[in-house]
Nucleic acid binder design. Structure first.
Length: 229
DNA sequence: AATTGTTCCAACCGCACGACT
DNA sequence: TAGTCGTGCGGTTGGAACAAT
């Protein structure tokens, strides 16, 4: 049994105050990142090391880009999600100034719904025949879809809906049949030379791609993934 | 103006993994 | 080899903000 990362009795929780932020910023400016476990005490913060790390990485780092996601960022997230799945840190690594938490939140609150409204299963990026055969008649249907799907109580129903989609999806055949009407996803793949965070990332992605050619991600049958070839 | 419902996001939690002893 | 530590990751939640009634 591991010890907790810090003595939870003596730590603050919840939102960070400006004073706390400033202490953290000042400390890291002086001493750099690292050794998160001892940082709180050294910086005079009543916070757990993990909490400090999260705060710094997600909100205080000077190189962060705040604000809305651009359209090309959205496209890239969708494409990378199709390739990598919920590997938010890898996806965020391709989006300069964005964090995994930010990308994850944006996916869950915007992009998932956007894909569903387009008739695409956000879990496997395949066309959902139910929605396609009942083309989005209006914003009303889209609205109906979006409303109520996101509450915590409704997470389960959303999940089961997606699972149902799996059973009827046959995106591969759809690809070959233009009559299915692929939604305009603007999926021209233009992944530029990655702003690589590390060599390890590259190696890992190469491994992924190599292994995917044979099994899990079916390049030849996925309407989205086929665009990566 | 008050109440209720919904959305969004900051933060927490538990787990996994690599490094080290 | 097993245990511990430090860190990173992804899933989940709490609550503030906003919208609808």
């Amino acid at each position: 049994m591991r010890k907790p990362c810090c003595d939870k009795l003596d730590t603050n929780k919840g939102a960070w105050s400006k004073q706390e932020d400033q202490k953290l910023i000042d400390y890291i400016r002086k001493n750099g990142e690292g050794c998160w476990r001892t940082l709180p005490q050294a910086a005079g913060l009543l916070r757990c090391g993990k909490s400090c790390r999260l705060r710094w990485i997600n909100y205080l780092r000077p190189d962060l880009k705040r604000g809305n996601f651009a359209e090309d960022e959205e496209d890239l997230i969708i494409k990378l999600h199709a390739l990598l799945g919920n590997r938010w840190s890898l996806i965020a690594g391709r989006l300069p100034g964005r964090t995994d938490n930010e990308v994850k939140n944006y996916w869950n609150s915007h992009l998932r719904r956007k894909l569903m409204n387009m008739g695409i299963d956000p879990n496997n990026h395949r066309l959902n025949h139910i929605n396609v055969s009942r083309p989005q008649t209006s914003n009303a249907s889209a609205g109906a879809m979006s409303s109520g799907l996101k509450t915590h109580a409704n997470h389960q129903s959303e999940k089961s809906q997606v699972e149902n989609c799996d059973q009827v999806s046959d995106a591969g055949s759809c690809l070959e049949d233009d009559s299915c009407g692929l939604p305009d996803l603007n999926l021209d793949l233009m992944i530029t030379m990655p702003s690589l965070n590390s060599l390890a990332d590259v190696e890992e992605e190469q491994k992924l791609v190599e292994s995917n050619t044979s099994s899990e991600l079916e390049f030849t049958h996925s309407p989205t993934l086929v665009l990566f070839r």
